[in-house]
Simulated scan of single mutants.
Amino acid sequence: MKRLLICFFLLAGVQLAHAQYYKTDTVTRKGFDPSRLVLGGSLGMVFGDVTNVDISPLVGYRFSDYIAAGVNINAQYGQYKVWSYDQIVQRDKYTIFGGGIWGRVYPLPMVFIHVQPEYNFVTQNSTVYLNNNEKQTYKTNYGVPSLLVGAGYTQNVGGRVGIGISILYDVIQDDRSPYNNSLIYRVGAGIGF
Rank of each mutant, 00 (worst) to 15 (best):
D86G: 10
A75E: 02
S64N: 09
R104S: 07
G99Y: 03
V50K: 14
V50R: 13
G99E: 02
Y66H: 15
G70D: 06
V105T: 03
W102A: 10
F97C: 02
V53C: 09
V53S: 10
N52G: 10
Y85P: 00
I96V: 15
L108V: 04
A69H: 00
S56C: 13
W102S: 08
M110T: 11
F47P: 07
M45R: 05
A69Y: 00
V50I: 14
V89Q: 09
F97G: 09
A75W: 11
I73A: 13
N72Y: 06
T95L: 05
Q87H: 08
V82M: 09
V50F: 15
I88H: 00
F47Q: 14
N74I: 14
I88Y: 01
D92E: 15
K81M: 09
L58E: 15
K93M: 07
I101N: 00
D54E: 13
V46T: 14
T51Q: 10
R104D: 12
Y61W: 06
G103N: 00
L58A: 14
V50Q: 13
D54F: 05
Y94G: 05
W102K: 03
Q90I: 07
V105H: 06
I88T: 12
Y94T: 04
W83E: 11
I73G: 12
S64T: 07
G44F: 14
I67G: 05
T95I: 07
V89G: 05
P109Q: 02
N72D: 11
A68R: 05
A75M: 10
V46D: 15
A75S: 13
G100N: 01
Q76G: 06
D49R: 03
K81H: 03
R62H: 11
V105C: 12
G78F: 03
I73Y: 14
D54W: 05
V53D: 03
G103K: 04
